[in-house]
Design a protein around this nucleic acid. Structure first.
Ligand SMILES: Nc1nc2c(ncn2[C@H]2C[C@H](O)[C@@H](COP(=O)(O)OP(=O)(O)OP(=O)(O)O)O2)c(=O)[nH]1
Ligand SMILES: [Mn+2]
Ligand SMILES: [Mn+2]
Length: 685
DNA sequence: TTGCTGGCCGGC
DNA sequence: AAACGCCGGCCAGCAA
């Protein structure tokens, strides 16, 4: 089919390509054989909008490789656009009335003018390939082992995956990952700004320039004409392809190839995990919702009584009034402790409420209301809405954390409330995440992971000695700060010890440590002093790392060539221009970020390698077991009940067996993971 | 109506 | 809360 309305897509460094609109089986077969002759291609699909890509409908498939762009409509609802949508003021004759005092009945009021939107009009829908036929012809390409490149390729693979018995196996590459490995600190990685900036340079700062050069029609596919979407999709695939061609070689030049390969390998694993999802126990979440509703109502009444007014408790301004306002105006007359950063309001948060909770009933009640309201609104409601066929599917993001950690969103399953001491039995949200019938959950978590990383990186003799003898430094810190014998340190206390260890390790002041522990500032100061006396290699290691990072920057070009740290294990970079700041506070903050990035990034890299090893280990030795979640240093696996124990052993095996250049990841420091088995997340951990 | 920011809080 | 770090989600307030 000739395509008169499609101009060529071009980039100065590439030959011009005339996009090929594919509407017959014969044409598609030719396209497939062309693409099969090349090692890699870009895939981008346009779809209907759906809650998850597994539920959308693919309307277009776009492909690009060397010298070719193919656009395959398989269900576009319109032909070419004839007239665009427009809005006009038009008379509304239904508003016409006779004049009230006109006895003849012939004089009428003028019609009111209203704005009316006229939809676009389109020519007849042209012949298109039926989806089943198109996907059948494309099958050899998608399952060929050719590298499939996309911009957020997981979305495209999930979208097309449902047209086949199984997901295409890859290998996959992703221009988001490519960009993030090259430049980890961009505020966003969307295709349009990325490409526009790449091609237009400084001109791309103007939003109108961006929109004119590369308008985003992705959310409006079904409202546009056939050729409008064809042109748009041609840009998407062609620019993704040329962007990849241009920037892929930078990896080797900048020693980032290994980091990128790891991310691409991980992408396949995360894709499988997202598809699997987690089974959820609906009865439990409903019961929790009811319990919370009742508790929230009670607390609300109590607070209304104290304040003498019924009001929405989410209104921060009212709450500030009742908390800090003078008694004469019905407030509690409490003294503000600090003021907010940007708007200079008295801060009213958990820490402030805790500070007053013992002496003030409003603080105490509000603290509890806030926690329960959060639980209900941020977790019960959103998790209920996120269920698809009884399972919850999160997205694992590889490009949202500057340190190389993963993040989770839609919903975020890396922030599900953990069980708290003395908390009501009925509101344990982790019970919602359960094993499907006939299965068990295996949950495993690295022991004191970042402390072990520090021990190895700083080569600290005392830390290494303690880990060699199986010490629990979190429990020890809790015991020391809280003045408790180590045997009575429970989960809640140990968690305090954990916060103390990491906050101190990453530069907290004695005030913060005092706030975490509830002990005096002097006790906190002493703890910090002893911490760095004990772990005496750590301060020197930090100094050396900061100096190395600073030397990598160019003082004459702090924005273009800022200082950076290189994350151990992965080779990723984390740029920190603040290390060059003249402002002491800004510089100190940058220094804490730099040190934390080294350690957090290292731990994240270990977890990523374990995820890949574990995924393929399970695939080979326990194919009915599946990874479901990862929470920074933790994994959740679902396995048939009969082999849960074996799978648990495999999980710890792969987690502890991570190597870097063939050697144990932490050298002399043991890498320990412990696995638990249960019917739900709460039980298994 | 939508989109953005600040404040806050859940997790690791 | 104050010289821990890394995230995502909800809500109110404000601008467009
Ligand atoms: N900077 C900082 N990092 C934290 C904090 N909480 C957790 N992390 C980081 C460091 C931990 O090693 C890592 C994993 O969290 P975990 O809860 O699993 O703690 P960790 O492995 O240290 O101890 P564990 O033996 O698993 O209880 O996440 C914190 O409050 N501050
Ligand atoms: Mn851990
Ligand atoms: Mn953990």
């Amino acid at each position: 089919m000739s395509v008169p309305l499609l101009e060529e897509v071009s980039h100065p460094a590439f030959p011009r390509v005339a996009p090929h609109l594919v509407t017959t089986e014969q044409e598609l077969r030719e396209v497939v054989s062309y693409f099969m002759a090349h090692p890699a291609f870009v895939l981008d699909v346009e779809t209907t909008i759906a809650p998850t890509p597994a539920l959308n409908e693919v309307l277009w498939i776009g492909l690009a490789t060397y010298g070719k762009v193919a656009l395959i409509p398989i269900g576009h609802p319109h032909g070419p656009k004839i007239t665009p949508e427009f809005t006009a003021k038009e008379p509304d004759y239904s508003t016409v009335r006779p004049y009230a005092n006109d006895k003849t009945g012939t004089r009428m009021t003028k019609p009111r003018l209203v704005s009316v939107t006229h939809p676009a009009t389109f020519g007849p829908v042209p012949r298109q390939l039926r989806p089943d036929i198109a996907f059948e012809i494309l099958q050899p390409l998608f399952f060929s082992g050719k590298t499939i490149i996309g911009h957020n390729v997981k979305f495209d693979i999930m979208s097309i995956g449902k047209y086949y018995p199984e997901m295409p196996p890859g290998p996959f590459e992703d221009t988001i990952l490519l960009t993030h490995v090259l430049d980890e600190s961009r505020p966003d990685y969307a295709l349009k700004p990325l490409i526009t900036q790449w091609i237009l340079g400084a001109k791309a700062r103007r939003k109108e320039a961006r929109d004119e050069f590369y308008p985003n029609l992705g959310k409006h596919v079904v409202e546009e004409g056939l050729y409008d979407i064809a042109r748009y999709l041609a840009k998407d695939v062609f620019y993704t392809w040329t962007y990849w061609c241009n920037n892929r070689p930078r990896l080797a030049a900048e020693e980032l190839e290994e980091a990128y390969y790891l991310e691409c390998a991980l992408l396949t694993v995360l894709l499988a995990m997202e598809n699997t999802g987690v089974y959820t126990d609906m009865a439990v979440i409903e019961a929790i919702g009811r319990q919370l509703d009742a508790d929230i109502r009670m607390l609300q009444l109590e607070i209304w009584k104290i304040c003498g007014e019924q009001f929405e408790l989410t209104l921060k301004s009212k709450l500030r009034h009742y908390f800090f306002g003078p008694k004469s105006e019905g407030g509690q007359g409490l003294k503000p402790l600090t003021y907010t950063e940007k708007t200079n309001e008295p801060q009213l948060n958990k820490a402030v409420m805790e500070h007053y909770a013992d002496s003030n009933p409003l603080a105490k009640a509000l603290l509890e209301w806030t926690a329960k309201h959060k639980l209900k609104s941020a977790f019960v409601v959103s998790l209920t809405e996120a269920r698809v066929n009884g399972r919850i599917h999160t997205s694992f993001n590889q490009h949202r954390a500057e340190t190389g950690r993963l993040s989770s969103s839609g919903p975020n399953l890396q922030q599900v409330p953990r069980p708290k001491k003395g908390a009501d039995k009925g509101t344990q949200l982790r019970e919602v995440f359960a094993a499907a019938p006939g299965h068990k959950l295996i949950v495993a978590d690295y022991d004191q992971i970042e402390l072990r990383c520090i021990a190895y990186l700083a080569n600290d003799p005392e830390m290494i000695r303690l880990f060699a003898s199986g010490m629990d430094i979190h429990a020890e810190a809790a015991s020391s700060m809280l003045g408790l014998p180590i045997e009575v340190v429970g989960d809640a206390e140990r968690n305090v010890g954990k916060q103390v260890n990491f906050s101190v390790g990453y530069g907290a002041s004695e005030y913060r440590v005092a706030a975490i522990t509830g002990r005096s500032v002097e006790e906190a100061r002493l703890f910090i002093e002893r911490y760095f006396q004990r772990f005496s290699a750590v301060p020197g290691w930090k100094e050396r790392e900061l100096l190395t990072a600073l030397r990598r920057g160019n003082p004459r070009n702090p924005i273009g060539e800022p200082p950076y740290v290189v994350i151990p294990g992965s080779g990723r970079r984390r740029r920190i221009k603040e290390l060059m700041s003249d402002d002491f506070k800004v510089r100190a903050s940058g220094q804490r970020q730099a040190i934390n990035a080294l350690v957090q990034g290292f731990a994240a890299n270990i977890m990523k390698k374990a995820l890949i090893d574990l995924h393929y280990g399970l695939k080979q030795y326990a194919p009915d077991a599946h990874l479901e979640l990862t929470v920074h240093d933790e994994v959740m696996v679902e396995a048939p009940t009969f082999q849960a124990e074996q799978v648990g052993a495999m999980v710890t095996h792969y987690m502890q067996g991570v190597t870097i250049n063939g050697r144990p990841a932490l050298g002399p420091v043991p890498l320990i993971a412990s696995a638990g088995i249960g019917d739900n997340w709460l039980e298994a951990k």
